[in-house]
Write a protein that binds this DNA or RNA. Sequence first.
DNA 1: ATCGGATTAAACAGCA
DNA 2: ATGCTGTTTAATCCGA
Length: 671
Amino acid sequence: MVESASETIRSAPSGQNGVGSLSAQADGGGGAGTAGTAPAAGRDASGREAASGADSNGEMSPAELLHFQQQQALQVARQFLLQQASSLNSPGNNDSKQSASAVQVPVSVAMMSQQMLTPQQMQQILSPPQLQALLQQQQALMLQQLQEYYKKQQEQLHLQLLTQQQAGKQQPKEALGNKQLAFQQQLLQMQQLQQQHLLNLQRQGLVSLQPSQASGPLQALPQAAVCPTDLPQLWKGEGAPGQPAEDSGRQEGLDLASTAATATSFASPPKVSPPLSHHPLPNGQPTVLTSRRDSSSHEETPSSHPLYGHGECKWPGCETLCEDLGQFIKHLNTEHALDDRSTAQCRVQMQVVQQLEIQLAKESERLQAMMAHLHMRPSEPKPFSQPVTVSADPFPDGLVHPPTSAAAPVTPLRPPGLGSASLHGGGPARRRSSDKFCSPISSELAQNHEFYKNADVRPPFTYASLIRQAILETPDRQLTLNEIYNWFTRMFAYFRRNTATWKNAVRHNLSLHKCFVRVENVKGAVWTVDEREYQKRRPPKMTGSPTLVKNMISGLSYGALNASYQAALAESSFPLLSSPGMLNPGSASSLLPLSQDDMGAPGEPLPSNGSTSPPRLSPPQYSHQIQVKEEPAEAEEDRRPGPPLGAPNPSTVGPPEDRDLEEDLGAEDMS
DNA sequence: ATCGGATTAAACAGCA
DNA sequence: ATGCTGTTTAATCCGA
């Protein structure tokens, strides 16, 4: 009647049958409708996007999401690292120098680290921009210090150089400048860092790199006695400049996974005898990363320079514009010649790299811990045949070995407890796996408690099931709205961060579902769960379809289901169901005032007798038959035949059953 | 293609 | 007046 044509226009993409078009539903909704639609349309897109993110694209399970996030963080860090490293190495290509003298590195890392960000700070997950900002900060600070400090140390440096050369190790070829020495040293340090990192990875993150340890490589360097004969070879590999730092960096970034992966599995014997005194690498491949990068850049345009890109000098803090490579070279030689400043800057860069390494190690460690946690449960059959580890897993120990961060395959991860259902649920919010398959939310929740608590992934449960869980977890099975909110935020990181909409959804669900009953309490209103109502709505489709049930049972191992269900009962405070006695008038009433009401209520069929009232709840039942739908199974026994509930055979129409039940209890309930 | 459940958004009323 | 709570409607998505 009302031609709310105006409204009509909006929606109706295709979503609902023609409703949209006709719709307008001017009918009752009137006010709400008009006002609501507009915003709703626009918001839906964004809102959903935020909430479901991956859903639309590729389906990701919560765990996959998490994994993905972690990988991204690591990649960013690694990319950064490689970029930094590339600029660090670049100077070396000017000439293939050799001679190595262990340059004493005066700058104490410890000192530096104090000036710089604390490990704790670094440890925080930084967004790329943040990371960059921090790095710049570090660089600035360190630069300052270095410049001052370096003057004092220069003498010492020269002295050492002389000493080295006199020792007969000096290379006749060309005189080595401090610059080269410094770079060599840095290179070595990089190698050490990389080794350390790899080692850490291989140790599955059990080795955490402490800030204090960070100075290890540096200080150990002198003693490590860079073997002069080794260095040349090292440098040789990087004779060619390679592509612009940026490009190479980018490339590395893209290729990071494989790079890292190869790094860990590389078997090629290193040319450099690992100087690292403390971390002997089993298969030693100290230079893998470096040499690999070098070699790749090696074949690249000789006309470019790692420190030159996009027409500007990439020297840290420089950014001088240079029209061409020639000009850049000139600039490099003049502005960044071997002097205090350049050397200091190199060190700074080195520090940056080191810090990144540390950060990377920490993130890797975290990732590994997370993955280890997620892989902890062998229970689930993996649908994916994808190998979890990259190549042969070199880890001998018995620990679970999640892929190392470096080599981490993109294997989809997911919370161990999650059933496949939740998996393809695609992640975001449309989950309800628990509802559908009767896989008890409590069990999954218990298993993945920590996961959901810390991972910002949306739990694969419906609001209704979550609310119910929250309520059932409490001793008296009742919660105020606010307490429910608190439970959500306490149990799920997701709800801690996505506060906008879910509260409304919770309220909406509380009101919408009959299974949630509001009870006036002394101190206000509390919400309780009417289990029967809840159970009623659970098996949406299974009810009438024997085939469905059959499929389900065959699909999910009965044993597993049963087990999980029992587990749920046990751990999840489902005393109501698990213990027959619970339904006794006394206790039941106190606990579930409402449900009690329903059952025994006014005139209603439900016997006040607890055991009988909830047919499907009777203990024997789930003990052998999952509750999957089985309310029918034995309900009838105690119950009067009348109610469809009792209908033993599934063929009996589902709807009636549902309806009846509803009427049975619903009546009172409604009132 | 359709249906029903779930989610999200929003309007609105009642209450402290 | 404001914020919280609770109810309701509508749009949309998604799985069956």
